[in-house]
Design a protein around this nucleic acid. Structure first.
Length: 529
RNA sequence: GGCGACUUAGCCAAGUGGUAAGGCGUGGGACUGCAACUCCCUGAUCGGCGGUUCAAAUCCGCCAGUCGCCUCCA
Protein backbone atom coordinates (compact mmCIF):
# COMPACT_ATOMS: atom_id res chain seq x y z
CA UNK A 1 0.00 0.00 0.00
CA UNK A 2 1.26 3.40 -0.91
CA UNK A 3 1.80 5.94 1.75
CA UNK A 4 -0.71 8.75 1.72
CA UNK A 5 0.45 10.82 4.61
CA UNK A 6 -0.38 14.48 4.26
CA UNK A 7 1.40 16.79 6.63
CA UNK A 8 1.37 20.49 7.22
CA UNK A 9 4.76 21.93 6.35
CA UNK A 10 5.73 25.19 8.01
CA UNK A 11 8.16 25.81 5.18
CA UNK A 12 5.44 25.97 2.53
CA UNK A 13 2.57 26.79 4.88
CA UNK A 14 0.48 24.08 3.28
CA UNK A 15 -0.61 20.55 3.91
CA UNK A 16 1.51 18.46 1.57
CA UNK A 17 1.93 14.86 0.56
CA UNK A 18 4.86 13.53 2.50
CA UNK A 19 7.57 12.10 0.27
CA UNK A 20 10.90 11.22 1.87
CA UNK A 21 14.22 11.71 0.12
CA UNK A 22 14.82 8.01 0.08
CA UNK A 23 11.84 5.71 -0.55
CA UNK A 24 10.76 3.81 2.52
CA UNK A 25 13.09 5.64 4.82
CA UNK A 26 12.55 8.70 6.99
CA UNK A 27 15.18 10.80 8.67
CA UNK A 28 13.70 12.75 11.49
CA UNK A 29 15.25 15.26 13.84
CA UNK A 30 13.78 16.61 17.05
CA UNK A 31 14.94 19.55 19.11
CA UNK A 32 15.44 17.98 22.50
CA UNK A 33 15.16 19.53 25.92
CA UNK A 34 17.47 21.97 27.63
CA UNK A 35 18.19 19.96 30.71
CA UNK A 36 18.33 22.55 33.42
CA UNK A 37 14.98 21.74 34.97
CA UNK A 38 12.11 19.28 34.82
CA UNK A 39 10.06 19.19 31.65
CA UNK A 40 6.57 20.53 32.15
CA UNK A 41 3.56 18.95 30.53
CA UNK A 42 3.51 21.66 27.87
CA UNK A 43 6.99 20.63 26.72
CA UNK A 44 5.80 17.07 26.70
CA UNK A 45 2.88 17.84 24.43
CA UNK A 46 5.37 18.37 21.62
CA UNK A 47 7.19 15.15 22.33
CA UNK A 48 3.94 13.22 22.51
CA UNK A 49 2.82 14.49 19.11
CA UNK A 50 6.24 13.86 17.58
CA UNK A 51 6.11 10.36 19.02
CA UNK A 52 2.76 9.79 17.34
CA UNK A 53 4.20 11.02 14.06
CA UNK A 54 7.18 8.72 14.37
CA UNK A 55 5.06 5.72 15.28
CA UNK A 56 2.61 6.39 12.51
CA UNK A 57 5.44 6.54 10.01
CA UNK A 58 6.66 3.19 11.28
CA UNK A 59 3.14 1.82 11.21
CA UNK A 60 2.88 2.97 7.61
CA UNK A 61 5.87 0.86 6.78
CA UNK A 62 8.71 3.34 6.90
CA UNK A 63 12.01 2.73 8.45
CA UNK A 64 12.55 5.73 10.69
CA UNK A 65 15.81 7.09 11.97
CA UNK A 66 15.19 9.64 14.64
CA UNK A 67 17.74 11.82 16.37
CA UNK A 68 17.29 14.11 19.34
CA UNK A 69 19.80 16.45 20.87
CA UNK A 70 20.17 17.24 24.53
CA UNK A 71 21.06 20.86 25.13
CA UNK A 72 23.49 20.70 28.01
CA UNK A 73 25.52 23.81 27.23
CA UNK A 74 25.35 27.16 25.58
CA UNK A 75 21.72 27.97 26.00
CA UNK A 76 21.79 31.57 27.02
CA UNK A 77 18.94 33.49 28.48
CA UNK A 78 20.03 36.23 26.10
CA UNK A 79 21.82 36.18 22.79
CA UNK A 80 23.98 39.10 23.77
CA UNK A 81 27.01 37.96 25.68
CA UNK A 82 25.59 39.42 28.82
CA UNK A 83 23.17 36.62 29.36
CA UNK A 84 23.38 33.77 31.71
CA UNK A 85 23.62 30.19 30.65
CA UNK A 86 20.53 28.27 31.62
CA UNK A 87 22.50 25.24 32.56
CA UNK A 88 24.70 27.30 34.80
CA UNK A 89 21.69 28.91 36.34
CA UNK A 90 20.26 25.51 37.15
CA UNK A 91 23.56 24.39 38.60
CA UNK A 92 23.81 27.44 40.81
CA UNK A 93 20.29 26.98 41.99
CA UNK A 94 20.98 23.45 43.10
CA UNK A 95 24.63 23.74 44.06
CA UNK A 96 25.68 21.08 41.62
CA UNK A 97 28.04 21.01 38.67
CA UNK A 98 26.64 21.62 35.24
CA UNK A 99 27.25 18.03 34.23
CA UNK A 100 25.48 16.72 37.31
CA UNK A 101 22.51 18.88 36.51
CA UNK A 102 22.48 17.72 32.91
CA UNK A 103 22.61 14.07 33.87
CA UNK A 104 19.90 14.41 36.47
CA UNK A 105 17.44 16.26 34.26
CA UNK A 106 18.17 14.16 31.20
CA UNK A 107 17.26 11.07 33.19
CA UNK A 108 14.19 12.80 34.56
CA UNK A 109 13.15 13.76 31.04
CA UNK A 110 13.32 10.23 29.70
CA UNK A 111 11.60 8.91 32.76
CA UNK A 112 8.71 11.29 32.06
CA UNK A 113 8.74 10.21 28.44
CA UNK A 114 8.58 6.55 29.38
CA UNK A 115 5.56 7.17 31.56
CA UNK A 116 3.88 8.87 28.63
CA UNK A 117 4.84 6.00 26.30
CA UNK A 118 7.09 8.27 24.28
CA UNK A 119 9.63 6.13 22.50
CA UNK A 120 13.24 7.08 23.07
CA UNK A 121 14.75 8.30 19.78
CA UNK A 122 17.27 6.02 18.12
CA UNK A 123 20.01 8.52 18.80
CA UNK A 124 20.08 10.87 21.75
CA UNK A 125 23.05 13.16 21.53
CA UNK A 126 24.21 15.65 24.17
CA UNK A 127 25.64 18.83 22.70
CA UNK A 128 28.79 18.51 24.79
CA UNK A 129 29.65 15.32 22.88
CA UNK A 130 29.87 17.16 19.60
CA UNK A 131 32.03 20.20 20.18
CA UNK A 132 34.43 19.16 17.43
CA UNK A 133 31.54 19.00 14.95
CA UNK A 134 30.40 22.48 15.90
CA UNK A 135 33.90 23.87 15.46
CA UNK A 136 34.31 22.16 12.09
CA UNK A 137 31.04 23.58 10.88
CA UNK A 138 31.80 27.09 12.12
CA UNK A 139 35.22 26.95 10.46
CA UNK A 140 33.60 26.06 7.19
CA UNK A 141 31.12 28.90 7.55
CA UNK A 142 34.03 31.26 8.22
CA UNK A 143 35.84 30.03 5.12
CA UNK A 144 32.77 30.47 2.98
CA UNK A 145 32.32 33.96 4.29
CA UNK A 146 29.05 33.37 6.10
CA UNK A 147 30.50 34.12 9.50
CA UNK A 148 32.58 36.85 11.05
CA UNK A 149 34.45 37.53 14.22
CA UNK A 150 33.55 40.51 16.36
CA UNK A 151 34.15 41.37 19.96
CA UNK A 152 35.68 37.96 20.53
CA UNK A 153 32.67 36.03 19.30
CA UNK A 154 31.81 34.40 16.00
CA UNK A 155 28.58 35.52 14.38
CA UNK A 156 26.56 34.25 11.47
CA UNK A 157 26.08 37.00 8.90
CA UNK A 158 22.44 36.85 7.87
CA UNK A 159 22.96 39.58 5.27
CA UNK A 160 24.85 37.03 3.17
CA UNK A 161 21.63 35.17 2.47
CA UNK A 162 19.18 35.94 -0.28
CA UNK A 163 16.43 34.57 1.83
CA UNK A 164 16.59 34.47 5.57
CA UNK A 165 12.98 34.55 6.74
CA UNK A 166 12.05 31.29 5.08
CA UNK A 167 9.85 29.97 7.84
CA UNK A 168 8.04 33.07 8.94
CA UNK A 169 7.02 36.27 7.25
CA UNK A 170 9.05 38.56 9.39
CA UNK A 171 10.79 41.49 7.86
CA UNK A 172 13.92 43.20 8.98
CA UNK A 173 12.44 46.67 9.15
CA UNK A 174 9.70 45.74 11.53
CA UNK A 175 11.49 43.16 13.55
CA UNK A 176 11.73 44.55 17.02
CA UNK A 177 14.96 43.94 18.84
CA UNK A 178 14.98 43.54 22.55
CA UNK A 179 11.23 43.54 22.84
CA UNK A 180 11.50 41.78 26.09
CA UNK A 181 12.97 43.81 28.84
CA UNK A 182 15.59 41.32 29.88
CA UNK A 183 17.15 41.19 26.45
CA UNK A 184 19.98 43.48 25.56
CA UNK A 185 21.08 44.27 22.09
CA UNK A 186 24.48 42.96 21.12
CA UNK A 187 26.61 45.79 19.75
CA UNK A 188 28.90 43.43 17.88
CA UNK A 189 26.29 42.29 15.39
CA UNK A 190 26.40 43.67 11.89
CA UNK A 191 22.72 42.90 11.36
CA UNK A 192 20.12 42.59 14.00
CA UNK A 193 19.26 39.06 12.97
CA UNK A 194 22.87 37.82 13.17
CA UNK A 195 23.40 35.21 15.82
CA UNK A 196 26.32 33.82 17.77
CA UNK A 197 27.99 30.63 16.61
CA UNK A 198 30.80 30.60 19.15
CA UNK A 199 31.44 32.57 22.30
CA UNK A 200 34.95 33.24 23.53
CA UNK A 201 34.31 36.40 25.35
CA UNK A 202 31.60 36.65 27.85
CA UNK A 203 30.91 39.15 30.53
CA UNK A 204 30.25 36.36 32.91
CA UNK A 205 33.36 34.35 33.59
CA UNK A 206 31.96 31.49 35.55
CA UNK A 207 30.86 29.44 32.55
CA UNK A 208 31.91 26.01 33.70
CA UNK A 209 32.28 24.23 30.40
CA UNK A 210 34.72 25.66 27.90
CA UNK A 211 36.60 24.20 24.99
CA UNK A 212 39.59 25.09 22.87
CA UNK A 213 38.75 26.45 19.46
CA UNK A 214 40.52 28.28 16.62
CA UNK A 215 39.05 31.48 18.07
CA UNK A 216 40.07 30.87 21.63
CA UNK A 217 38.61 29.05 24.60
CA UNK A 218 34.87 29.26 24.64
CA UNK A 219 31.61 27.49 24.04
CA UNK A 220 29.06 27.11 21.24
CA UNK A 221 26.01 29.20 20.55
CA UNK A 222 22.69 27.49 20.82
CA UNK A 223 21.60 27.16 17.20
CA UNK A 224 24.70 25.46 15.85
CA UNK A 225 24.15 22.34 17.91
CA UNK A 226 20.98 21.17 16.22
CA UNK A 227 22.40 21.64 12.73
CA UNK A 228 25.64 19.90 13.51
CA UNK A 229 24.10 17.01 15.43
CA UNK A 230 21.52 16.40 12.77
CA UNK A 231 24.07 16.43 9.96
CA UNK A 232 26.41 14.20 11.96
CA UNK A 233 23.84 11.47 12.44
CA UNK A 234 21.41 11.88 9.58
CA UNK A 235 23.56 13.26 6.82
CA UNK A 236 23.09 16.17 4.49
CA UNK A 237 19.41 15.67 3.72
CA UNK A 238 16.80 15.61 6.41
CA UNK A 239 13.17 14.65 5.87
CA UNK A 240 11.41 16.01 8.92
CA UNK A 241 12.51 18.48 11.54
CA UNK A 242 10.23 18.73 14.55
CA UNK A 243 9.80 21.13 17.40
CA UNK A 244 7.56 23.46 19.30
CA UNK A 245 6.07 26.40 17.42
CA UNK A 246 8.15 28.90 19.35
CA UNK A 247 11.25 27.52 17.67
CA UNK A 248 10.18 28.71 14.25
CA UNK A 249 11.82 32.01 14.80
CA UNK A 250 14.66 32.40 15.45
CA UNK A 251 15.94 28.92 16.24
CA UNK A 252 14.79 26.96 13.21
CA UNK A 253 15.22 29.94 10.91
CA UNK A 254 18.83 30.11 12.03
CA UNK A 255 19.31 26.38 11.69
CA UNK A 256 18.24 26.60 8.07
CA UNK A 257 20.49 29.59 7.47
CA UNK A 258 23.62 27.94 8.83
CA UNK A 259 22.91 24.40 7.60
CA UNK A 260 22.18 25.37 4.02
CA UNK A 261 25.06 27.83 3.90
CA UNK A 262 27.31 25.07 5.15
CA UNK A 263 25.97 22.33 2.89
CA UNK A 264 25.39 24.45 -0.17
CA UNK A 265 21.99 22.91 -0.85
CA UNK A 266 18.55 22.43 0.62
CA UNK A 267 18.71 20.69 3.94
CA UNK A 268 15.29 19.72 5.29
CA UNK A 269 12.04 19.27 3.37
CA UNK A 270 9.38 19.16 6.06
CA UNK A 271 9.06 21.26 9.18
CA UNK A 272 6.64 19.89 11.75
CA UNK A 273 5.67 22.30 14.52
CA UNK A 274 3.44 21.70 17.48
CA UNK A 275 1.36 24.47 18.98
CA UNK A 276 1.59 25.25 22.63
CA UNK A 277 -0.22 24.01 25.63
CA UNK A 278 -1.70 26.98 27.39
CA UNK A 279 -3.55 27.42 30.60
CA UNK A 280 -6.04 30.08 31.51
CA UNK A 281 -3.23 32.62 31.80
CA UNK A 282 -1.50 31.74 28.54
CA UNK A 283 1.51 29.72 27.60
CA UNK A 284 2.99 27.38 30.15
CA UNK A 285 6.68 27.95 30.50
CA UNK A 286 9.50 27.04 32.73
CA UNK A 287 10.51 30.62 33.17
CA UNK A 288 7.15 31.47 34.61
CA UNK A 289 8.29 29.46 37.59
CA UNK A 290 5.30 27.45 38.56
CA UNK A 291 4.72 24.56 36.22
CA UNK A 292 3.03 21.19 35.98
CA UNK A 293 5.09 18.07 35.59
CA UNK A 294 4.19 14.46 34.97
CA UNK A 295 5.06 13.65 38.56
CA UNK A 296 2.73 16.33 39.81
CA UNK A 297 -0.09 14.86 37.76
CA UNK A 298 0.68 11.42 39.10
CA UNK A 299 0.69 12.71 42.65
CA UNK A 300 -2.77 14.02 42.05
CA UNK A 301 -3.92 10.59 40.98
CA UNK A 302 -3.81 10.93 37.21
CA UNK A 303 -2.49 8.22 34.97
CA UNK A 304 0.10 9.93 32.73
CA UNK A 305 -1.50 8.22 29.76
CA UNK A 306 -4.64 10.21 30.44
CA UNK A 307 -2.58 13.29 29.69
CA UNK A 308 -1.36 11.63 26.51
CA UNK A 309 -4.96 11.02 25.51
CA UNK A 310 -5.76 14.62 26.41
CA UNK A 311 -3.16 15.69 23.86
CA UNK A 312 -4.31 13.23 21.21
CA UNK A 313 -7.87 14.41 21.57
CA UNK A 314 -6.83 17.70 20.08
CA UNK A 315 -4.98 18.55 16.90
CA UNK A 316 -1.28 19.32 17.09
CA UNK A 317 -1.69 22.56 15.17
CA UNK A 318 -4.20 24.02 17.54
CA UNK A 319 -3.38 25.65 20.82
CA UNK A 320 -4.55 23.40 23.63
CA UNK A 321 -5.82 24.88 26.84
CA UNK A 322 -5.08 22.86 29.91
CA UNK A 323 -7.46 22.68 32.83
CA UNK A 324 -8.06 20.03 35.40
CA UNK A 325 -11.72 19.99 34.46
CA UNK A 326 -10.79 19.07 30.90
CA UNK A 327 -8.30 16.49 32.13
CA UNK A 328 -10.96 14.94 34.37
CA UNK A 329 -13.13 14.70 31.31
CA UNK A 330 -10.51 12.67 29.52
CA UNK A 331 -9.74 10.60 32.61
CA UNK A 332 -13.37 9.50 32.69
CA UNK A 333 -13.30 8.72 28.99
CA UNK A 334 -10.10 6.71 29.38
CA UNK A 335 -11.58 4.67 32.21
CA UNK A 336 -14.72 3.96 30.26
CA UNK A 337 -12.74 2.90 27.25
CA UNK A 338 -10.72 0.51 29.35
CA UNK A 339 -13.90 -0.96 30.81
CA UNK A 340 -15.42 -1.48 27.41
CA UNK A 341 -12.29 -3.08 26.06
CA UNK A 342 -12.07 -5.28 29.14
CA UNK A 343 -15.43 -6.72 28.20
CA UNK A 344 -13.86 -8.00 24.99
CA UNK A 345 -11.08 -9.87 26.68
CA UNK A 346 -11.41 -13.63 26.61
CA UNK A 347 -12.13 -15.41 29.86
CA UNK A 348 -9.21 -16.79 31.72
CA UNK A 349 -7.29 -13.61 31.07
CA UNK A 350 -4.96 -15.08 28.50
CA UNK A 351 -1.89 -13.02 28.77
CA UNK A 352 -1.03 -9.68 27.37
CA UNK A 353 2.65 -10.35 27.39
CA UNK A 354 3.83 -6.98 26.23
CA UNK A 355 4.72 -4.46 28.86
CA UNK A 356 4.06 -0.79 28.57
CA UNK A 357 7.72 -0.13 27.89
CA UNK A 358 7.82 -2.61 25.06
CA UNK A 359 4.67 -1.14 23.70
CA UNK A 360 6.18 2.30 23.76
CA UNK A 361 9.42 1.15 22.32
CA UNK A 362 8.40 -1.15 19.54
CA UNK A 363 5.52 0.54 17.91
CA UNK A 364 4.33 -0.65 14.59
CA UNK A 365 6.61 -2.65 12.45
CA UNK A 366 4.14 -5.08 11.12
CA UNK A 367 1.75 -3.34 8.83
CA UNK A 368 4.24 -3.07 6.04
CA UNK A 369 4.29 -6.76 5.39
CA UNK A 370 0.53 -6.87 5.27
CA UNK A 371 0.24 -3.84 3.07
CA UNK A 372 2.67 -5.28 0.64
CA UNK A 373 0.51 -8.33 0.20
CA UNK A 374 -3.01 -7.02 0.13
CA UNK A 375 -4.41 -10.01 -1.70
CA UNK A 376 -3.13 -12.52 0.71
CA UNK A 377 -6.04 -13.56 2.88
CA UNK A 378 -5.26 -17.07 3.86
CA UNK A 379 -3.36 -17.54 7.01
CA UNK A 380 -3.60 -13.85 7.73
CA UNK A 381 -4.27 -14.52 11.36
CA UNK A 382 -0.72 -15.56 11.83
CA UNK A 383 0.42 -12.21 10.51
CA UNK A 384 -1.65 -10.16 12.86
CA UNK A 385 0.49 -7.75 14.78
CA UNK A 386 0.90 -8.95 18.30
CA UNK A 387 -2.09 -11.23 18.20
CA UNK A 388 -2.04 -13.07 21.45
CA UNK A 389 -3.08 -16.57 22.25
CA UNK A 390 -6.05 -15.11 24.03
CA UNK A 391 -7.22 -13.23 20.99
CA UNK A 392 -6.79 -16.22 18.76
CA UNK A 393 -8.63 -18.43 21.18
CA UNK A 394 -11.63 -16.15 21.37
CA UNK A 395 -12.41 -16.24 17.69
CA UNK A 396 -11.33 -15.76 14.15
CA UNK A 397 -10.29 -12.36 12.91
CA UNK A 398 -12.84 -10.95 10.51
CA UNK A 399 -10.59 -9.49 7.87
CA UNK A 400 -13.09 -7.35 6.04
CA UNK A 401 -14.28 -5.57 9.14
CA UNK A 402 -10.74 -5.13 10.28
CA UNK A 403 -9.81 -3.63 6.93
CA UNK A 404 -12.69 -1.15 7.07
CA UNK A 405 -11.71 0.05 10.52
CA UNK A 406 -8.08 0.21 9.58
CA UNK A 407 -8.98 2.35 6.61
CA UNK A 408 -10.88 4.81 8.78
CA UNK A 409 -7.87 5.03 11.06
CA UNK A 410 -5.55 5.61 8.14
CA UNK A 411 -7.76 8.31 6.67
CA UNK A 412 -7.71 10.16 9.98
CA UNK A 413 -3.99 9.84 10.51
CA UNK A 414 -3.05 10.50 6.92
CA UNK A 415 -5.00 13.73 7.09
CA UNK A 416 -2.32 15.76 8.78
CA UNK A 417 -2.24 13.48 11.80
CA UNK A 418 -5.82 13.97 12.90
CA UNK A 419 -5.45 12.11 16.18
CA UNK A 420 -8.77 13.35 17.41
CA UNK A 421 -10.56 11.59 14.58
CA UNK A 422 -8.30 8.57 14.97
CA UNK A 423 -9.45 8.32 18.55
CA UNK A 424 -13.07 8.24 17.46
CA UNK A 425 -12.27 5.24 15.29
CA UNK A 426 -11.62 3.48 18.56
CA UNK A 427 -15.26 4.04 19.44
CA UNK A 428 -16.27 2.80 16.01
CA UNK A 429 -14.33 -0.35 16.74
CA UNK A 430 -16.24 -0.93 19.93
CA UNK A 431 -19.58 -0.33 18.22
CA UNK A 432 -18.89 -2.31 15.10
CA UNK A 433 -20.53 -5.67 14.60
CA UNK A 434 -17.49 -7.87 14.79
CA UNK A 435 -16.01 -10.64 16.83
CA UNK A 436 -14.21 -9.69 20.03
CA UNK A 437 -10.99 -11.08 18.66
CA UNK A 438 -11.24 -8.77 15.69
CA UNK A 439 -11.93 -5.76 17.84
CA UNK A 440 -9.03 -6.56 20.14
CA UNK A 441 -6.70 -7.05 17.22
CA UNK A 442 -7.69 -3.69 15.76
CA UNK A 443 -7.34 -1.90 19.05
CA UNK A 444 -3.96 -3.44 19.60
CA UNK A 445 -2.89 -2.37 16.15
CA UNK A 446 -4.06 1.23 16.57
CA UNK A 447 -2.48 1.42 19.95
CA UNK A 448 0.90 0.79 18.38
CA UNK A 449 0.56 4.35 17.17
CA UNK A 450 -1.59 5.91 19.88
CA UNK A 451 0.28 4.17 22.70
CA UNK A 452 -2.44 4.72 25.24
CA UNK A 453 -1.83 1.36 26.89
CA UNK A 454 -5.45 0.45 26.27
CA UNK A 455 -5.08 -3.30 26.43
CA UNK A 456 -3.03 -3.14 29.59
CA UNK A 457 -5.60 -0.83 31.12
CA UNK A 458 -8.37 -3.17 30.06
CA UNK A 459 -6.50 -6.13 31.49
CA UNK A 460 -6.21 -4.28 34.77
CA UNK A 461 -9.88 -3.52 34.78
CA UNK A 462 -10.66 -7.14 34.12
CA UNK A 463 -8.41 -8.27 36.88
CA UNK A 464 -9.87 -5.89 39.36
CA UNK A 465 -13.39 -6.72 38.31
CA UNK A 466 -13.23 -10.48 38.24
CA UNK A 467 -10.37 -11.49 40.39
CA UNK A 468 -10.34 -8.65 42.83
CA UNK A 469 -11.99 -10.64 45.56
CA UNK A 470 -9.30 -13.23 45.45
CA UNK A 471 -6.54 -10.68 45.11
CA UNK A 472 -7.89 -8.53 47.85
CA UNK A 473 -8.22 -11.53 50.07
CA UNK A 474 -4.64 -12.45 49.32
CA UNK A 475 -3.44 -8.92 49.85
CA UNK A 476 -5.36 -8.33 53.00
CA UNK A 477 -4.43 -10.35 56.00
CA UNK A 478 -6.42 -13.52 56.32
CA UNK A 479 -8.34 -12.47 59.33
CA UNK A 480 -9.61 -9.31 57.70
CA UNK A 481 -10.50 -11.14 54.50
CA UNK A 482 -12.41 -13.73 56.44
CA UNK A 483 -14.29 -10.99 58.22
CA UNK A 484 -15.21 -9.39 54.91
CA UNK A 485 -16.38 -12.69 53.46
CA UNK A 486 -18.46 -13.28 56.53
CA UNK A 487 -20.08 -9.86 56.22
CA UNK A 488 -20.87 -10.51 52.60
CA UNK A 489 -22.54 -13.77 53.55
CA UNK A 490 -24.55 -11.98 56.21
CA UNK A 491 -25.64 -9.38 53.70
CA UNK A 492 -26.58 -12.07 51.23
CA UNK A 493 -28.76 -13.68 53.84
CA UNK A 494 -30.32 -10.34 54.73
CA UNK A 495 -31.08 -9.66 51.07
CA UNK A 496 -32.65 -13.06 50.74
CA UNK A 497 -34.90 -12.24 53.68
CA UNK A 498 -35.74 -8.89 52.06
CA UNK A 499 -34.22 -7.19 55.05
CA UNK A 500 -32.65 -4.41 53.00
CA UNK A 501 -32.08 -2.16 55.95
CA UNK A 502 -29.74 -4.74 57.40
CA UNK A 503 -28.14 -5.34 54.01
CA UNK A 504 -27.41 -1.65 53.54
CA UNK A 505 -26.07 -1.40 57.03
CA UNK A 506 -23.58 -4.15 56.29
CA UNK A 507 -22.54 -2.46 53.06
CA UNK A 508 -21.90 0.75 54.96
CA UNK A 509 -20.02 -1.10 57.65
CA UNK A 510 -17.74 -2.55 54.97
CA UNK A 511 -17.36 0.81 53.30
CA UNK A 512 -16.24 2.28 56.57
CA UNK A 513 -13.38 -0.22 56.57
CA UNK A 514 -12.45 0.66 53.00
CA UNK A 515 -14.18 -2.25 51.35
CA UNK A 516 -16.28 -1.54 48.27
CA UNK A 517 -18.70 -4.22 47.16
CA UNK A 518 -20.55 -4.72 43.94
CA UNK A 519 -23.20 -7.24 43.03
CA UNK A 520 -22.57 -9.03 39.79
CA UNK A 521 -24.14 -11.98 38.10
CA UNK A 522 -21.36 -14.13 39.45
CA UNK A 523 -22.02 -12.98 42.97
CA UNK A 524 -20.77 -10.21 45.16
CA UNK A 525 -17.20 -9.05 44.64
CA UNK A 526 -15.22 -6.73 46.86
CA UNK A 527 -12.14 -4.64 46.67
CA UNK A 528 -10.15 -2.37 48.88
CA UNK A 529 -10.84 1.20 47.91
C1' G B 1 4.48 48.45 15.78
C1' G B 2 5.26 43.85 12.60
C1' C B 3 4.18 38.53 11.82
C1' G B 4 0.91 34.40 12.79
C1' A B 5 -3.07 31.50 14.89
C1' C B 6 -7.65 30.58 17.17
C1' U B 7 -13.36 31.46 18.22
C1' U B 8 -18.28 24.87 16.72
C1' A B 9 -23.57 22.40 22.16
C1' G B 10 -22.44 22.78 29.84
C1' C B 11 -17.07 21.05 28.85
C1' C B 12 -13.25 18.79 25.33
C1' A B 13 -13.41 18.35 20.15
C1' A B 14 -13.74 16.66 14.46
C1' G B 15 -15.37 18.75 10.23
C1' U B 16 -12.15 23.74 4.25
C1' G B 17 -18.50 24.41 -0.39
C1' G B 18 -23.72 20.23 -0.19
C1' U B 19 -26.76 20.81 4.39
C1' A B 20 -23.16 19.76 11.97
C1' A B 21 -18.38 13.09 13.89
C1' G B 22 -16.97 11.44 18.59
C1' G B 23 -16.12 11.81 23.83
C1' C B 24 -17.21 13.67 28.91
C1' G B 25 -21.18 15.61 31.62
C1' U B 26 -26.60 16.36 32.15
C1' G B 27 -31.56 14.47 31.72
C1' G B 28 -34.73 10.13 30.69
C1' G B 29 -35.18 4.78 30.32
C1' A B 30 -33.67 -0.75 30.94
C1' C B 31 -31.33 -3.90 34.64
C1' U B 32 -30.84 -3.91 40.28
C1' G B 33 -34.54 -4.23 46.66
C1' C B 34 -31.36 0.29 46.51
C1' A B 35 -26.58 1.74 44.90
C1' A B 36 -22.55 0.91 41.61
C1' C B 37 -21.36 -1.23 36.88
C1' U B 38 -23.32 -1.95 32.03
C1' C B 39 -26.70 -0.93 28.00
C1' C B 40 -30.32 2.34 25.22
C1' C B 41 -32.18 7.27 24.25
C1' U B 42 -31.21 12.59 24.82
C1' G B 43 -28.48 18.37 22.86
C1' A B 44 -25.78 23.06 18.90
C1' U B 45 -26.88 25.94 12.53
C1' C B 46 -21.14 26.72 13.90
C1' G B 47 -18.14 34.74 17.86
C1' G B 48 -20.95 39.21 15.29
C1' C B 49 -22.28 41.81 10.71
C1' G B 50 -22.06 41.95 5.43
C1' G B 51 -20.72 39.63 0.67
C1' U B 52 -19.81 35.55 -3.20
C1' U B 53 -22.69 31.01 -4.53
C1' C B 54 -28.17 27.08 -6.52
C1' A B 55 -25.72 25.83 -1.81
C1' A B 56 -21.04 28.27 3.52
C1' A B 57 -19.23 26.32 9.97
C1' U B 58 -16.37 25.79 5.49
C1' C B 59 -14.58 31.20 0.42
C1' C B 60 -14.05 36.95 0.76
C1' G B 61 -14.45 41.62 3.72
C1' C B 62 -15.18 44.27 8.18
C1' C B 63 -15.80 44.08 13.59
C1' A B 64 -15.13 41.80 18.45
C1' G B 65 -12.60 38.57 21.74
C1' U B 66 -8.55 35.19 23.01
C1' C B 67 -3.62 33.44 22.29
C1' G B 68 1.39 32.95 20.33
C1' C B 69 6.16 34.81 18.02
C1' C B 70 9.61 39.17 17.18
C1' U B 71 16.75 36.38 19.73
C1' C B 72 14.97 32.21 27.55
C1' C B 73 11.13 29.06 25.84
C1' A B 74 8.34 22.62 23.44
Amino acid sequence: MENNLNLYNTLTKRVERFVPNEPGRVKMYTCGPTVYHFAHIGNLRSYIMEDVLEKFLRYSGYEVERVMNITDVGHLSSDADTGEDKMLKGAKREHKTVMEIAKFYTDAFFSDCARLHIRRPDVVEPATNCIADFIRMIEALMEKGYAYQAGGNIYFDTAKLDEYYVLSNQNAEELAVGVRESVEEDENKRNKTDFVLWFTKSKFDDQELKWESPWGVGYPGWHIECSAISIRHLGERLDIHCGGIDNVFPHHTNEIAQSESYLGHKWCNYWFHILHLNDAEGKMSKSRGDFLTVSLLENQGYNPLVYRMFCLQSHYRKPLVFSFAALDNVAAAYEKLAVRIAALLPDGGAGLPKTAEQDAGNAGQSLKAQQNTPEQKTGKEQDMPGLTAGEQASGKIEEEKLAALRKAFLVAMNGDLNTSSALTVLYDVLKTDADSATKLAVIREFDEVLSLGLLEAAENVKKSREAKSADAAADADGEFAAWVEQKIEERKAAKKNKDFTAADAIREELAARGVVIRDTREGTVWELA
